[in-house]
Nucleic acid binder design. Structure first.
Lengths: 226, 226
DNA sequence: TCCAATTTGACAATCGTGTGACAAACAAAT
DNA sequence: ATTTGTTTGTCACACGATTGTCAAATTGGA
């Protein structure tokens, strides 16, 4: 059975983006652009999770959250808040009012999807640990944020780390530049496609003997050899 | 069977916060905003633990605690006191009042949850050994609240102590600034997140040869070298 | 061979962290 | 209540690391 996720957000671009990704992941999105109507839908439909923008027309996210948490029928529904940069103060209050997590814009849809998954699991009482990824002598430990080759630590920048993580995580499958830009850089990225190539190069340089594991798929993108 | 925990606290924000976290941890929260009514509930329901704010309308936390400890049916129920900064803490710890532990606001919900767990276990007769953390010549003794390097005591402020404790306790893992703010500064910190950096610097200065054990993870946060 | 795609080297702009200084908040003592 | 010293949070600046971009060189496939 598909989880229903209510998204209340006034920016059409972000909304479409989130909606598309939710569908792609098999969720059933309910969307609203207006605060009051968002609250109405939340109370009527009782979705499995709510993604709430902080700044909304007619009724802001904070108020919606307050009402939901006071209502016995909806208090258990997890809420993820979306906040713009600079709304730091409000984000804390969001937590006090029972928001389960928050994201600061700009964020990548991928990241939001991940948090949604985590929050839903947590709400269901299952907590999960970040997984250590291994590939022969190559070990990526997200908890420590380290990459080692045969126990020898590798010094990667954050972008290189994220890129490698993405590649190894989906090893065997080809990732297009668009995919990588989306997953590693996030939706805000509007630049030069070849940026990916540059980072692949830097990654290969640092990977030493594992460099050849990052295969170029001409005309498509890159793939980590399985 | 779920432990029932009574929370008597007049600040709605704090109350919601605690309530939410208790539920998330699988406890069954009973909540009251008024001192007198809090006492009534305590006497009638006999919860497994009581979290009491010191300053309360109609009847303050101290009085409630006194009454409970005089009553044979409730004297065994552990009490955790919540106090604002600057309030007389000494009187609370006084064994005549019988509070089992206390927390100074602001605190992080995580920290409260930890203490609740400890106090409940202790009440059940399972005593927790105070864990002394060692790392080569660096010794942190939480019970004495002291830090020594090769037997030589280190003069740390409370914030520095907490920060170091948090870092060493989770050594090997990266802690983001947000994470540290949450765990070290508590739930209502609304400030500049680079405050963390400043305290890291002060800590490094005092740590002498151990300074290099606090690693900077660019783009993420800090990590204590394992 | 030729064309399109990728790799490479170079560069400037931007970002993140360390640092010193400062004032507010606090605690202890008078 | 006032003073004194300590602790704490904030900020501006400097500097090196990181990043995105581009053009030229190279590669691979038709």
């Amino acid at each position: 059975m598909r989880k229903r996720i209510l998204v209340v957000e006034d920016d059409q671009d972000i909304l479409s983006l989130i909606e598309w990704h939710l569908k792609a992941e098999g969720y059933q999105p309910l969307i609203e652009k207006d605060g009051q109507r968002g609250l109405d839908v939340a109370l009527r439909e009782k979705p499995d999770l709510i993604v709430l923008d902080l700044m909304l027309p007619s009724l802001d996210g904070l108020e919606i959250c307050k009402v939901l948490k006071k209502n016995e029928a909806t208090e258990h529904i997890p809420v993820i808040m979306l906040t713009a940069k600079g709304e730091e103060i409000d984000r804390i209050i969001g937590f006090e009012l029972g928001a389960d997590d928050y994201m600061v814009k700009p964020f990548s849809p991928r990241e939001l999807l991940l948090r949604i998954k985590v929050v839903i699991r947590r709400a269901a009482g299952i907590s999960e640990k970040p997984v250590i990824i291994r590939y022969d002598g190559l070990v990526i430990d997200p908890e420590r944020h380290t990459v080692t080759i045969d126990e020898v630590p590798l010094e990667l920048t954050i972008t290189e780390y994220n890129l490698l993580f993405e590649l190894v995580k989906t090893k065997g499958r080809v990732l297009t530049r668009d995919h990588l830009l989306d997953r590693v850089w996030g939706y805000r990225f509007e630049g030069y496609h070849r940026t990916v190539d540059t980072h692949i190069r830097r990654l290969r340089q640092k990977l030493g003997s594992f460099a050849e594991n990052i295969e170029t798929v001409r005309g498509i993108g890159y793939r980590f050899k399985e």
